[in-house]
Simulated scan of single mutants.
Amino acid sequence: MKTLDLLHRWIGGLIGLVLAVLGFSGALLVHKDAWVILPHASDAQVQETAAIAATVERIMADPTTRPEMITFAGRNFGLNRLRFANGSGAYTDQAGDLVTRWSSQWERPELWLFDLHHHLFAGDTGETVIGIAAIAGLFFVISGVILWTRTRKTFEFRILPKRVSRPAILRHHRDLGVVAAPLLTLALLTGSILVFRPVAALILGPAAPAQIDASLKPPSHPHVPLAAKHDWRGLIVEARAHFPDAEIRSLSLPRQGSGLITLRMKRPDEWLPNGRTTLWFAADDGRLVKARDASRLSQIVMIYNVLYPLHAAKVGGLSYRLLMTFVGLALSLLGTLSVWSFWFARKSVSGPVPQLAKVQH
Rank of each mutant, 00 (worst) to 15 (best):
R108S: 12
R66N: 12
P209D: 01
K32R: 14
P63I: 06
L28C: 13
F326I: 10
T151V: 13
L17N: 05
A61N: 04
R101H: 14
L170N: 02
S348V: 00
R150V: 07
A20E: 03
D115F: 01
R101E: 14
R346A: 04
D269R: 13
I135F: 02
H172S: 10
G96E: 07
V141Q: 04
M1N: 13
E247C: 05
S338T: 09
V301Y: 15
L4E: 04
A214G: 07
G123K: 02
G137C: 08
P67D: 06
P109A: 08
N86S: 04
D33G: 08
R9C: 11
T92P: 07
L263R: 11
L251H: 11
A291P: 05
V199F: 06
I159E: 00
P225W: 06
F114E: 05
A214S: 03
N76P: 00
I193S: 09
A239E: 06
A27P: 06
F139H: 11
Q360Y: 07
D43F: 11
D62S: 03
S103E: 15
R83F: 06
F326C: 10
Q45A: 07
S88N: 01
I135N: 03
A210S: 15
R264T: 04
W102F: 13
V46M: 10
R66L: 01
G316P: 11
G275M: 10
L334E: 11
G13K: 07
G335P: 12
G328Y: 00
L79V: 11
T262I: 05
A227Q: 02
S332C: 14
V18P: 11
L111G: 00
W148D: 01
R321H: 08
H118W: 09
A34E: 11
P161W: 13
G23K: 14
T3L: 09
G96Q: 11
